[in-house]
Amino acid sequence: MTEGPEGGGRAAFGQKSAELAVAAFFFVIGAVVIADSLRLGTGWQEVHGPRPGYFPFYLGLIMCAASLINAARALLAKRAEDKAFVEVGQLRLVLTVLVPTAVYAGLVSWIGIYVASFLYIALFMRWLGKYPWWKAAAVPGCLIVVFFVVFENWFKVSLPKGPLENLLGLG
């Protein structure tokens, strides 16, 4: 599979809009940093030297300025350069992985990392890899047992657990 899947050639976003979005992201972060620095004080204090907000203030300023320049450069770029940032088909592929990953990260605090990992790998293998169910269950099944032994027993690192582990008395 080297080509994007069927009907996916259209641009989902242009490069220009992506550039502007990223520049805006930097500007917002810069502004947040400046706001907090002003609260902390940006000057020189008698006993303690530069106040805690001294450094963040200036780097926030630089970040805002740089993002304005980057945004201006994106706006001034020639139309021809506005190639597709991501095509619809590509975006679909990216999202088929990103969305489950985000859900997985969210689930960890509810059902523990072991069960969540099992479900995540199994469903990934089933949906995207089209493996038969037994394989999709066996691979993550073995893996989480290995992880459990390595982390909980060897290295004595306690990973997040959920109701299932508590029920089994492993919590």
Partner: peptide, 8 residues
């Protein structure tokens, strides 16, 4: 910009 984000 990227470097400043790292510092922040």
């Amino acid at each position: 910009a990227a470097m400043m984000l790292g510092f922040a």
